[in-house]
Structure formats: C-alpha cells, structure tokens
C-alpha cells in the first residue's frame, strides 16, 4: 500500500471540498478500498474519512425507503421495515459477503464496489480498467466468472454487488452532493456506465461528488420480492448468477414486474424486456419461461462463461416461481 495522508472532515462540504482534487479517495466502510490499496490498484495520496458525516439513518416512510449512504449492510439487513416491505433488499444483503464485512460495508460504498475480475486486481496483468489501453487478457483468458452482457472488446468485468442488483430492480434513486452544496438525483440504473471503450470510467460521479442517500420507492412489487443467488460455494462467495425479482400480482395476474440480475452483466443488469413480457400474464411456469427466454438477449458469452446463458434463465424462472408463490 502506498503512503497517504488522512483527513477526517467534520461535515459534508468540507469533505467534498477536500476530495474534489485529484488523488483523493473517500473511505466509508473501506472493505473494498482497503483491498484495492493493498493490491496497489488504488494509490490515493489522501484518504478522506466520512466517519463523522451524519448519513447513517434508515428511514422507512410510507412512500419510500431512504437509506443513508453510510448505513451499514448489517443494519439495513436487520431493519424490520426493510425485511417486511423490501425483502429483496434484505435477502440480497444477507447473501452478500460475510457478517464481519457486512458490519463494515456501507450502502454508498457498495454501489462503488469494483469488479472482482482477477486481472483487474493483480497489477501483474494488463487491464484496460486499471490502465486504459493496456489490453484485456480476460476476454480470451479465465473468464468463467465474467460478464456475458454489457461487455465490450475492452472489458467484460462483472459488477460484483448483490445489493445494487436488488436496488436497481426497485428503481432506486441516488442522492448526490457536489461542490458548493449542489445536489442532484441519479437513478441507479443510470449511475453505472457500460465499459465501452472507457472501462476505467465506471459511474457518472463527478470529482468529489458524494453519495448521501439511496431512495427506494415503496411499491406493491417491492413488498412481494426476493433475491436468489447461485454460487459454487454455499456461502461467502460472489454470485455466479443472481436474480432480484419483484412482482405485483392481481389475483394470479402479473400487474407489474421488476427484474434485475447479477453475475451476468458489466453493471447491475435490469431486464425491461422480461418485465414487459411478464406484465398482464398469468403468473406461472409458462409465462415465467417465456419471459426468461428473453433474459440473455444480447449476450456475448466467452468460452468459460457460456453456461450463464442457460443458468440465467433457470435462475430467473426459479426466482419468479418463489416470489409468486
């Protein structure tokens, strides 16, 4: 880890002012940043600690769930209103990482978690995400864990977060705060960028801009929701494939569906075509299979991850069946 200086601002504006310059990095839970610094992938000159900032509240109102960006994964997962009205969020959180990591990691930080691609995290390899223009050996290398959707000739790294998959399905909006107190809102679906030919640019965040809250609209679909994660190991592993499903049922008919999947995309992968194919249909295996068949649309699998095309559909059908039941 390279040496850095440490700053612990007392409020957001001081933090934003400090972090707006190059070479600065916010630290919240630190669970990913610390790994990246130890692996020499991140080399900040200064760390700006968000510990003193007040964004830890979890507020479950009638219209929305408002998650402070510094709320921990553990606290959100354990919140009774989250489990009751947004079960997909609680389930995604409890399927994430380990209890220790969930005690540290935060909502905002998790949106910024970087890929687990082994080529990205080892400076002994070339990587376009880490060193633009150096090449992507993963595309023709060890790619079993990498994305089949949203990749480019420059990068097929999977977005690793389970939580982001659940939140993007529920139309979550991020509240951002920038220089001079300016605030804006960005839909989570628009927050992460596809790699294209700039895989090192992962989000729409401006320098110094800070995530302050994640706002999840309440809905009937959110209440009937669930998360299914498929993996090799029984626990403490990133997803091979995962599905976040939220359904609003009218009798047996699907009034609304929100679907996103993890482990398959270069960003948390929302599936509007599948949602459209489900709406208005009788919930059941026939509709689920027909809709799921559209899930891999546009997939460009590599040699080792081609199985995800089929696994993605089967995972989605199972998640739909479970949530509809």
């Amino acid at each position: 880890m390279q040496s850095f200086s440490y700053l612990r601002p007392a409020d957001a504006d001081a933090a934003i002012a400090a972090a707006a310059q190059p070479g600065k990095k916010y630290i919240a839970g630190g669970t990913d940043l610390m790994q990246l610094m130890k692996d020499d992938v991140e080399r900040p000159a200064q760390i700006v600690d968000l510990d003193a900032l007040p964004y830890t509240k979890i507020e479950a109102g009638p219209d929305a769930l408002r998650l402070g960006a510094l709320a921990t994964m553990s606290d959100v997962a354990a919140h009774p209103e989250v489990a009751r009205k947004y079960p997909v969020i609680a389930q995604a959180l409890l399927a994430s990482a380990s209890p220790q990591l969930r005690n540290m990691a935060t909502m905002g930080g998790n949106m910024l978690q970087r890929t687990r691609c082994g080529y990205f995290r080892d400076t002994g390899f070339a990587c376009n995400k880490r060193e633009p223009g150096s090449g992507c050996p993963a595309i023709h290398g060890q790619n079993r864990l990498l994305a089949i959707l949203g990749g480019s000739g420059h990068c097929i790294a999977t977005h690793p977060s389970d939580l982001a998959v659940a939140l993007v399905a529920l139309d979550t909006v991020l509240e951002l705060r920038g220089a001079n107190g300016a605030t804006r809102q960005v839909a989570l679906g628009d927050f992460h960028k596809l790699p294209g030919d700039t895989p090192h640019i992962e989000t729409v965040l401006q320098p110094g801009e800070l995530i302050t809250a994640l706002v999840v609209p309440a809905s009937a679909a959110a209440r009937r929701s669930g998360y299914l994660k498929v993996r090799d190991r029984a626990s403490f592993e990133f997803a091979l494939v995962s599905a976040a499903v939220a359904l609003d049922l009218d009798g047996g008919v699907i009034r609304d569906a929100r679907i996103a999947m993890g482990g398959v995309g270069t960003k948390p992968w929302r599936l509007p075509a599948v949602e459209g194919a489900l709406r208005g249909h009788q919930a059941g295996d026939v509709a689920f299979a027909a809709a799921a068949a559209q899930a891999p649309e546009g997939a460009m699998p590599a040699v080792q991850n081609a199985f995800k095309v089929k696994l993605m559909q089967k995972t989605l059908v199972r998640a739909l069946r479970t949530v509809a039941a």
């Binding site: 082994g118 080529y119 050996p137 290398g141």
Partner: peptide, 17 residues
C-alpha cells in the same frame, strides 16, 4: 487454481476466488 494461459500467472491467487 486457475492459470492465465498467455502469461502463466494465476488469476485467483486469493481466498475469495
């Protein structure tokens, strides 16, 4: 342990992957 064929370097030399 997964080897990158091009470089002979291990891709999952950690306890997460």
């Amino acid at each position: 342990t997964e080897t990158d064929a091009e470089t002979g370097r291990y891709v999952n030399a950690n306890l997460a992957e």
